[in-house]
Simulated assay, not measured.
Amino acid sequence: MTQDTTKEIQTLENRSKKNRWLVGILFLISPVGYFYTNRYLLAIITTIIYFILVTTVEEYEAISILWLLFIIGITVENITSINNAKEKVKFLQGNSPQSGNNASNPNLMILKALENNGEMTASQIILATELTPQIVKETLFTLEQEQLVYGYNREDDGVIVYKNT
């Protein structure tokens, strides 16, 4: 698995563990919600927009309404981001019983599936682990490089199958 994919999965897992209620409470100090969800660039951008909003609008009531709409929008976007991260992590981990402690480790999931089933095609591994095809392909490539599995053409039908070494 590539370093970018691993980092993306870890980022999603970290964001999915954030508390939506806390983000809702942090709406009063809008950029803090972005810092809490580890989205620093958006925190800086919203801070700049907030200061532009405060310094350019001269009427107090107009600032209040714009500020309220701005922070509600930020809060909704932050909560949506957490919800999306939870859904993506759930999808990546799958809902299978075998996805307990090893759900976040595709290497172990694939190695266990191969151990239980002997030789398997890539599509059989995808079905058994409920990982995305991209993650399975990248993980199989990594496992082959580390000589933990090997792929070969099955003699009877020529299909590429993988097996533990």
Results as ranks from 00 to 15, higher is better:
Ile52Pro: 00
Gln145Asp: 09
Leu140Tyr: 05
Ile79Thr: 08
Glu144Cys: 00
Glu130Tyr: 06
Thr46Tyr: 12
Glu138Leu: 14
Ile9Gly: 03
Trp21Arg: 05
Gly158Val: 08
Asp4Pro: 00
Tyr152Thr: 05
Thr6Leu: 15
Lys86Ile: 02
Gln93Ala: 14
Leu108Ala: 11
Asn84Val: 06
Asn14Gln: 10
Gln124Arg: 01
Asp156Ser: 13
Lys112Glu: 12
Glu115His: 13
Asn78Phe: 01
Asn164Thr: 14
Gln134Ala: 08
Leu114Ala: 02
Asn38Ser: 15
Val54Arg: 09
Glu115Met: 11
Leu28Val: 03
Gln134Asp: 09
Leu108His: 11
Thr56Val: 10
Met120Asp: 03
Val23Tyr: 01
Ile65Arg: 06
Val23Asp: 04
Leu143Lys: 07
Ile49Phe: 09
Ile74Val: 08
Thr47Met: 11
Ala128Leu: 10
Thr56His: 00
Leu92Asp: 10
Met1Asp: 04
Leu127Asp: 14
Thr75Asp: 00
Leu69Pro: 02
Glu138Phe: 01
Trp21Ala: 08
Leu92Thr: 01
Lys17Thr: 04
Val89Asp: 03
Ser123Met: 05
Ile45Met: 10
Glu119Leu: 10
Leu69Ile: 13
Trp67Ile: 02
Leu69Ala: 07
Leu42Lys: 13
Pro133Ser: 07
Leu12His: 14
Val149Pro: 01
Lys112Tyr: 06
Ile63Phe: 11
Thr139Tyr: 06
Ser81Ala: 15
Asn105Pro: 00
Thr6Cys: 05
Thr80Met: 14
Ile29Arg: 04
Gly24Ser: 02
Asn14His: 13
Glu58Met: 04
Phe51Ile: 13
Arg39Met: 15
Val54Glu: 11
Val161Ser: 03
Ile29His: 02
Ala43Pro: 09
Tyr40Leu: 12
Thr5Gln: 15
Pro133Glu: 14
Phe141His: 14
Leu66Cys: 08
Ile49Val: 12
Glu144Phe: 02
Gln145Ser: 05
Tyr152Val: 09
Thr2His: 10
Ile44Tyr: 07
Ser16Asn: 09
Lys90Asp: 08
Ile135Pro: 03
Leu42His: 15
Val23Thr: 04
Lys137Asn: 09
Asn95Pro: 00
Glu155Phe: 10
Tyr152Lys: 14
Leu69Asp: 01
Tyr60Leu: 08
Pro31Met: 03
Gln93Arg: 15
Trp67Glu: 06
Gln98Val: 07
Ser81Met: 10
Thr75Glu: 00
Glu58Trp: 09
Thr37Pro: 02
Glu13Trp: 13
Glu144Gln: 13
Ser81Gly: 15
Asn102Asp: 11
Glu8Tyr: 15
Glu8Ile: 11
Glu119Ala: 07
Asn164Tyr: 12
Pro133Lys: 08
Thr11Asp: 15
Leu140Val: 10
Arg39Gly: 05
Gln124Ile: 02
Lys137Thr: 06
Arg20Trp: 02
Leu26Gln: 01
Ile82Arg: 05
Phe51Gly: 06
Val57Tyr: 00
Leu28Asn: 01
Gln98Ser: 12
Ser123Val: 12
Asn117Ile: 10
Gln3Leu: 15
Ala122Lys: 15
Lys88Trp: 10
Met109Trp: 09
Phe91Asp: 14
Ile125Glu: 03
Asn84Ser: 10
Ile48Asn: 03
Gly33Met: 00
Tyr60His: 10
Leu69Asn: 12
Thr75Pro: 00
Glu87Asp: 13
Ile71Thr: 08
Ser99Leu: 04
Ile48Val: 11
Asn107Glu: 11
Ile125Thr: 06
Thr2Leu: 09
